[in-house]
Nucleic acid binder design. Structure first.
Length: 223
DNA sequence: TGCCAGGCCGGGT
DNA sequence: ACCCGGCATGGC
């Protein structure tokens, strides 16, 4: 028997409790973290963020004034440091040119418009855009990540080939449009994924969801 | 020691 | 419209 998404949320919340996301101290720090965490463990990103904090560079204009070589060195521990330096600078350029560096002003833009703008920035894809909207802007954008996809696919709720928009729609259509719910639900999926649904290490036999989601579902290797 | 991590881009079919 | 290689450090 199937359960609703709301019931799934309650089950995860009972299991893991509040995750206190996003682990960032300001909207700008959240945005920076959203870029740095792309395909990267948060433990790595933390070192990079601490470097920026220690240098008092969690500031749009200050960070944009830093040279490429210097920024690369500061965020090196986050990995992909050349790629991410370029992406961060593209994001900063957008903030400066479009909003004079004011995040308050940026987040007054209508959600759909702002999402399109963010997607047009080099290095900002759907997950990063939605993470920024939800966790930096407290706007109702449901975030889909690899864990969300993998968990749902492994349990047979969606196909392995489902794309970002389809997965996002699956949640948006089945849940009330509430920012705190979107916030906690995604954080809980990441927690569940980290603990039980890592790539090439399926442990769904001990997954907390194993009791009432279809069991024995065929897994796809490397996903 | 190797495998993996809270993606995205660009070039090739 | 997909498919794939590249990108890089740190933790288990």
């Amino acid at each position: 028997m199937k359960i609703t998404l709301t019931q799934l949320y309650e089950r995860l919340f009972d299991e893991f409790g509040p995750q206190h996301w996003w682990p960032g101290r300001s909207p700008l720090e959240v945005m920076i973290g959203a870029v740095l965490v792309q395909n990267t463990a948060w433990s790595n990103v933390r070192h990079a963020i601490e470097n920026l904090r220690d240098a008092d560079l969690i500031d749009v204009h200050a960070l944009y004034a830093v040279s490429t070589a210097e920024l690369e060195e500061l965020i090196r521990p986050a990995g992909y440091f050349r790629v991410k330096t370029r992406r961060l600078r593209a994001l900063l350029a957008y903030l400066v040119e479009q909003y004079d560096g004011s995040l308050e002003r940026m987040f007054t833009t209508a959600l759909d418009t702002l999402r399109e703008e963010l997607l047009a920035v080099h290095g900002i894809g759907p997950e990063t855009a939605d993470s920024i909207l939800l966790y930096a802007g407290e706007l109702p954008a449901f975030v889909v990540d690899t864990y969300t996809h993998r968990v749902l696919a492994r349990h047979g709720w969606i196909g392995f080939g489902a794309d970002y928009h389809a997965i996002q729609d699956y949640f948006v259509q089945g849940l009330p449009e509430e920012v705190p719910l979107y916030n906690e639900f995604h954080a809980l999926f990441v927690r569940l994924g980290k603990d039980f649904c890592r790539k090439s290490r399926p442990k769904c036999d001990v997954c907390p969801l194993g009791d009432w989601l279809p069991s024995g579902h065929p897994l796809e290797p490397d996903f």
